[in-house]
């Protein structure tokens, strides 16, 4: 049994490198979707296990991160479909980021709180589109492929996200 089929990707030297390079991006996407650190832990692990199992289906020369984000998105929606009990809760606000100094953390927490509250009121799909476009800076074409919608629909979700968020934030600052 060989993984090196003509159209399939050679697994990289070490799967650990894939994990190191993309864990945070996958984790943050799933955190934006679930809003719960424990669910996010589980789903991120599930995502990388799925990726490990299917590495031979990854197309050489394509965007590895986007591929992982798609697996993560599918894992989230699979779980949702199977069990409606997955709580899509508010994004926890007191999480510590290992990557920010205490000072910036304070500022960002204040600014971020409002945005986070507003984002959690969007539908999951709209939230997904907004996150992928803004944080990962993927094109609408790629966002659409990850989200399993058409490019036009992805644009509409972005339209909705921006309009709703501005309205919410405008109301809270007024």
């Amino acid at each position: 049994m060989s993984f090196a089929g003509a159209n399939s990707a050679e697994p990289p030297d070490s799967f650990g490198e894939v994990v190191e390079a993309h864990w945070t991006a996958v984790y943050r996407l799933l955190y934006s979707l679930t809003g719960d650190p424990h669910d996010t832990d589980d789903l991120t692990q599930e995502t990388f296990l799925r990726a490990l199992k299917r590495f031979e289906t990854f197309k050489k020369g394509t965007n590895l991160r986007a591929w992982l984000l798609r697996i993560g998105t599918n894992a989230f929606f699979d779980v949702k479909r199977k069990q409606q009990t997955l709580k899509i809760g508010p994004l926890t606000e007191d999480v510590k980021s290992e990557e920010k100094s205490a000072e910036t953390l304070l500022d960002l927490a204040e600014q971020g709180k409002l945005v986070r509250r507003a984002v959690q009121d969007l539908t999951e799909l709209t939230r997904l589109v907004f996150h992928l476009r803004v944080t990962e800076e993927l094109s609408f074409k790629e966002v659409a492929e990850i989200a399993g919608v058409t490019e036009v629909a992805a644009r509409q979700h972005m339209h909705q996200a921006r309009a709703k968020l501005l309205k919410r934030l405008g109301e809270s600052s007024a």
Binding site: Y27, R28, P37, T40, T44, E98, E99, K100, L108, G112
Partner: peptide
């Protein structure tokens, strides 16, 4: 603001996984 919010990176879960 969305990009810069302090989300967790899941570093502990990553170490466990690795």
């Amino acid at each position: 603001q969305w990009r810069e919010q302090s989300l967790p990176s899941g570093a502990e879960a990553k170490s466990r996984f690795l």
